[in-house]
Design a protein around this nucleic acid. Sequence first.
DNA 1: GTGGTCTAGACCACC
DNA 2: GTGGTCTAGACCACG
Lengths: 132, 132, 132, 132
Amino acid sequence: MIIEVDPDGDVPIYQQLRDRVVEAIATGALKEGSPLPSTRALATDFGINFHTVNKAYDLLRRQRLLRINRKSGAVVSRDASSGPAEPEFVADWTGRATTLLAEATARGLTRDDILDICRTVLATFGEESEES
Amino acid sequence: MIIEVDPDGDVPIYQQLRDRVVEAIATGALKEGSPLPSTRALATDFGINFHTVNKAYDLLRRQRLLRINRKSGAVVSRDASSGPAEPEFVADWTGRATTLLAEATARGLTRDDILDICRTVLATFGEESEES
Amino acid sequence: MIIEVDPDGDVPIYQQLRDRVVEAIATGALKEGSPLPSTRALATDFGINFHTVNKAYDLLRRQRLLRINRKSGAVVSRDASSGPAEPEFVADWTGRATTLLAEATARGLTRDDILDICRTVLATFGEESEES
Amino acid sequence: MIIEVDPDGDVPIYQQLRDRVVEAIATGALKEGSPLPSTRALATDFGINFHTVNKAYDLLRRQRLLRINRKSGAVVSRDASSGPAEPEFVADWTGRATTLLAEATARGLTRDDILDICRTVLATFGEESEES
DNA sequence: GTGGTCTAGACCACC
DNA sequence: GTGGTCTAGACCACG
């Protein structure tokens, strides 16, 4: 899992970290039970403040994607095959998706363009998660 | 076009405004040429500062969705039927979509769940734009 | 002399008008003594307020490029062959040129690129003013 | 780098600031990687509001001349030796240059006068950038 | 300590 | 009337 972070982007670093972890879970690079590096290790790797890594991990924990133990460090606590989504998450996610889809539509992408992109992206996920 | 804004949310007000306008364009409630309220009128309507509205309009202008005219105020300058999307926008959008789709996947939505939601949302758009 | 004005641009209309007239004088399309349309005629032609045309003419008058008579209307009062430039204009112009040249340099145009562009533009001027 | 700003001029302060920074980049006083003062520091230096500095920095950022980092503030992100200009910039710049050159021509500067001034100004740029 | 956001109110430029 | 600019001060997010 090679992760890159752009400290000059408009996206906060802690969120970039969160996003990369989420993507790694989606692609199957990280699975339920996979351990993550310690906050300090990750921080020195990227040359960023370890508070920033902490914040990213905390975000993931609140989104039920990470379990954090003082002893064993951070461990992925769910992935695509851990069970169905929570209804309240689906509602929230649908709202955010609506905005994103609206933007694509307004800027000139057709319904089929959009669905094709989604399908293409989704095809890159779960390549390793075809275990029932 | 009924718009609501939550001043206490974690999303900046000016971005909420931008999002609502984008969605209105996607659904066809706003079309190319549609006038928008003046910045000060919108501001008093929502009980917010006109600078905040200004920033939202400026965002939309930079995304080529709005044209600002000193005399007549803000006018929608593109919609779903205004032509194909710019390639650089597509690239950027795909990146953002990837993160969103990854989140859904990690949280337990299946590929088909996700595509169904997208299709459903997209179906609410462009109901009025099927004129050639 | 075909003139176009973009009411939605970031450049004020009265300045666009001024710029177009200045360019017309530079290319020789307008010469010392050439009459300009009345403010009201121009205004209705472009669908703009005649005060706007007035302001453009007033600017040109203050820059010694136009003479305005209540009777005979606006007349071009100088062109490229009307004599040497005033020193204070040269100083002011040099300052503005410095900023423009600096921008080109900072953005990656080389000294030769810039001079080539200037030469090319200047070559389109005065095609009709080669009378000594 | 000594910068002066005239709060009573017809040119907006934020644009004067932008112009001075651009010129500093062109002369080589600022190079890619050079840090700029914090918005609030600059603001108090000039006795202006920090929002005004903010706007100037934002302009420079949108023109790819500045990179803004939450931690370390603003850093120059390109200079004359950072690579060739973008075509769309060249087109836009040529348009603005045309108007400026037309004004000089109309006011009595000859082609050679103008090119001499340009050469003189350009000679003051990049005195320190002839490395490689 | 950095920039970002929001508010409030003033004045000006444009049309 | 419209938007644009500037000021002033408060609070928050980021690292």
